[in-house]
């Protein structure tokens, strides 16, 4: 680390490009993206379908390798025209939490173990991992379902469990791709409220990709992405109560 993490932005992206494929069929999904997110900040990422939102999250999460540009996480350069001495899986496991449109929980594990899984994969003991999982479930108000099978949960409960899983390793960054799409407006707002609370509580930097008209006004800062480029704008920052 080049400096104390708090003094650096959690995410700094400059001139990021991503081209899928080669030759005639190549698609330039990102054509120079600039973006900065501070610790504890929740920003919205909006844009038309096919504009490159998911691609950007995949690059930030070291799921897909960018084609050019630079990514710094908490002041550390992880990508600069190539991955910097990096194990993408370790990075994802230790520093990034993912929340998707569909919760994608592991159906053969119960609620607690789904949340504990990232900790277990990081080598923590079963006891410690489950203890932390129970705390997170309590924080997200699903502790009463701790022993339940995934198939027995409602959509909203599943999404909260997925958020708890994303928070398990206390990652400095959470990337959420349309996390409220399958929820009604009340539950969608509840999820955004939780994300904001977590950001404050743990100083997590959160990027939320969304189409959802109901939650867009809640962001203080938004990035518009159009045709592979980002445009920053101030959001309404409506109080969530």
């Amino acid at each position: 680390m080049s400096a104390a993490p708090e003094l650096n932005p959690a995410i700094e992206v400059a001139g990021l490009r991503k081209r899928y494929g080669v030759g005639d069929t190549a698609v330039d999904a990102l054509k120079g993206v600039d973006l900065t997110v501070q610790p504890g900040e929740v920003i919205g990422l909006i844009g038309p379908s096919g504009s490159g939102k998911s691609t950007l999250l995949k690059c930030l999460g070291a799921v897909t390798e960018p084609s050019d540009g630079r990514i710094r996480l908490s002041g550390e350069t992880v990508y600069d025209g190539g991955w910097h001495d990096l194990d993408p899986r370790a990075l994802r496991r230790d520093r990034i939490g993912f929340v998707f449109q569909a919760p994608y929980l592991i159906p053969f594990l119960d609620v607690t173990d789904n949340v504990a899984l990232p900790l277990l994969l990081a080598g923590r003991s079963n006891r410690e991992a489950r203890q932390r999982a129970r705390e997170l479930l309590a924080a997200l108000d699903v502790q009463h379902r701790a022993q339940a099978a995934i198939a027995q949960l409602s959509g909203g409960e599943q999404q909260r469990v997925a958020i708890a899983r994303a928070l398990a390793n206390q990652p400095p960054i959470i990337l959420a791709d349309e996390p409220t799409a399958p929820l009604d407006s009340e539950r969608a707002l509840a999820v955004v409220r939780i994300l904001n609370r977590m950001a404050q509580q743990y100083r997590t930097a959160i990027i939320v990709v969304t189409h959802d008209e109901k939650i867009i006004p809640t962001f203080r800062r938004l990035y518009h992405i159009r045709d592979g480029r980002t445009y920053e704008e101030a959001g309404a920052g409506r109080d969530l109560g």
């Binding site: 899986r89 053969f108 899983r165």
Partner: peptide
């Protein structure tokens, strides 16, 4: 396959 993709995404090693 989807669960396996999720496991990889949240950092499970190939060995796991």
């Amino acid at each position: 396959l989807r669960e396996i993709a999720v496991l990889k995404l949240i950092g499970a090693r190939n060995r796991t």
